[in-house]
């Protein structure tokens, strides 16, 4: 019985099947909104699914000089890390599937793994453009990770816990304290764009400069899995932000909480699409500059505020 429940959780809900479907929906919402912001029709609703199926049916080319095993395994590692991270995030309740004291840090680490696989993928491709994209994605990692983590620490500090479900419970009891983390929320949204490598931080896959960036040599099935992992990362990243910064309405009926969860994630995806439509791509040194000079002080300010407020917090 336990094994069946675990398999159901891993393969169907909230695991692989749910995440991939929701990832495709989120990609559709992102692309459609982006198109509407540009005053055009945009893709039909099945577009991400058609892209995925088409890539599955294409020839997969592996460069002769690349390490074939590493090249083939990396997309699966990225996807596995993202799906694992989802088990620690509350979805239909203020409880998560595998929550324990300290799971916030585990989720943060699991969400770093896809970026590392992008780096390794670019490096393993033995292509100049891919290597350049790989180095850029690692440079970018050092810029956005610190503000993102600082921003995520603030709400945890206020709730005096490292566990996402204890945080959810605390904020359900004291919903007004959610507003204390507003600055951190803004910092996290911007830093998440960097994590997902989306405009204005899509420097690692800047197609006008370095062809396809990290994924230059990827084709067919492997590219399909990588794209799916990125879609899932978008959902899980947004779900993490929703769990940490928007923990309202968690005490309702599970179905309502689930609908609210979907709405929160799609709201964050819509915000990301708005950012994508508003800004152009930065150069890598502008990006690092922005993250350390503006995002980082903002995140520190949020931490300071939290430390002061936690003196009066219940």
């Amino acid at each position: 019985m336990g094994v069946l429940v675990a398999l159901y959780a891993i393969l169907i809900f909230p695991g692989l099947a749910f995440l991939s479907t929701f990832g495709l929906v989120a990609e559709y919402v992102d692309r459609k909104l982006y198109a509407r912001f540009q005053n055009r029709m945009g893709p039909p609703w099945f577009q991400p699914f058609a892209d995925f199926v088409k890539l599955l049916g294409k020839e997969t080319i592996i460069p002769a000089e690349a390490n074939a095993t590493v090249f083939k395994v990396l997309p699966a590692v990225a996807m596995a890390a993202v799906v694992t991270a989802m088990f620690y995030i509350p979805v239909w309740d203020n409880r998560s599937l595998l929550g324990f004291e300290g799971d916030l840090i585990v989720v943060i680490y699991l969400l770093t793994i896809p970026t590392l696989t992008f780096f390794l993928a670019g490096w393993a491709s033995t292509s100049l453009y891919a290597a350049m994209g790989a180095v850029r994605s690692l440079t970018q990692l050092f810029a956005y990770e610190v503000p993102l983590y600082m921003a995520l620490l603030a709400p945890a500090l206020l709730a005096r816990t490292w566990s996402l479900q204890t945080m959810a419970r605390w904020y359900t009891e004291h919903p007004a304290w959610m507003l204390a983390n507003l600055l951190g929320f803004l910092v996290a949204i911007v830093a998440l764009q960097g994590k997902l490598e989306k405009v204005p931080f899509d420097i690692p896959e800047a197609e006008t400069e370095i062809v396809g960036g990290t994924f230059t040599e990827y084709s067919g099935r492997l590219l399909a899995v990588f794209r799916m992992a990125i879609d899932m990362e978008m959902v899980v990243g947004a779900a993490l932000l929703a769990a940490v910064f928007l923990p309202f309405g968690l005490g309702l009926h599970p179905v309502l909480v689930f609908v609210l969860f979907l709405a929160k994630v799609l709201f964050l995806v819509a915000l990301a699409a708005l950012l994508r439509a508003l800004f152009a791509r930065l150069r890598i040194e502008q990006m690092v500059d922005f993250c350390w000079r503006i995002l980082m002080p903002a995140a520190l300010l949020q931490l300071l505020l939290t430390v002061v407020l936690s003196g009066v917090a219940p």
């Binding site: 055009r40 029709m41 039909p44 370095i210």
Partner: peptide, 11 residues
Amino acid sequence: LERFGILLKGT
């Protein structure tokens, strides 16, 4: 062109 699912790719 995204109406038809057409995207420009660099590689």
